[in-house]
Amino acid sequence: MGTPRIARGAVARGVISVAALIGAGGILAAPAASAQAAAPCGPRAAACIDLSDNAAWLMDNGTVTYGAVPITTGKPGYETPPGTFSVTYKDIDHWSKAYDAPMPYSVFFTTSGIAFHEGSLREQSHGCVHLSPEAAKAFFDGLTPGDVVEVVP
């Protein structure tokens, strides 16, 4: 009997179905390395961003509640800064005046205008954290002003 495998991308999408957990012998098995173990942030973080792995999570007291999800971040010259920040405000239908572009489901966490928001997962940003439409909604719904956002290099 082979080792149970998770459907490719199931953990990255933040969804593991029963079918994804069924091994070759039809036995349910938990993943050996879960997205929860991979989140590199501390217990204060409500959101965790790993710049080197292009991944983000929502967390509660050190436990992953959503993710890992794929992200894109700042391009050269506009790098997303590492550090510990707090959510400052949210705007479901934000429009960037600086870049004349929509930023749906924006959750701002720096004083320089960097936010999580729906955006391209193929192109880097001007510092913001781009999320898929589904993940952007989850981060918007899951975070409130004052929540800690940890960004690790």
Rank of each mutant, 00 (worst) to 15 (best):
Y66A: 14
E79C: 04
G67N: 08
P82Y: 01
D60Y: 00
T88Y: 10
M59V: 00
K90F: 02
M59L: 11
A56Y: 01
T72M: 13
A55V: 09
G74W: 03
D91N: 15
G77V: 05
A68R: 14
P82K: 04
A55E: 14
K90S: 07
I92Y: 14
P81L: 05
F85I: 07
R44S: 12
K90E: 00
K75L: 09
V64M: 10
C48F: 02
H94D: 12
D60E: 12
A33H: 15
G74P: 03
R44W: 03
A30S: 12
V64Q: 06
V69F: 11
G67V: 03
G83P: 12
T65R: 13
N54P: 08
H94T: 06
S34L: 04
D50P: 08
A68T: 10
V87Y: 11
A29P: 06
R44K: 15
G67Q: 07
A55N: 09
G25P: 00
Y89D: 11
I49R: 02
A30Y: 12
G26T: 06
G62H: 06
L51D: 09
A56C: 05
T84C: 06
I49L: 01
T73Q: 02
T65E: 01
T65F: 02
K90H: 08
S34P: 01
N54L: 14
P81Y: 01
G77F: 07
G42W: 00
V87A: 12
A39W: 03
A30L: 14
I71L: 08
D60V: 04
A30K: 12
A55W: 02
N54I: 02
G62K: 04
L51V: 07
G42T: 07
Y78L: 03
L28W: 10
G42H: 08
M59I: 00
D50Q: 02
A37E: 14
W57L: 07
Q36D: 15
P40K: 07
T88P: 05
S34C: 02
T63I: 05
P82C: 02
R44D: 11
I27D: 08
A46Q: 10
L51K: 09
T80E: 07
P40D: 02
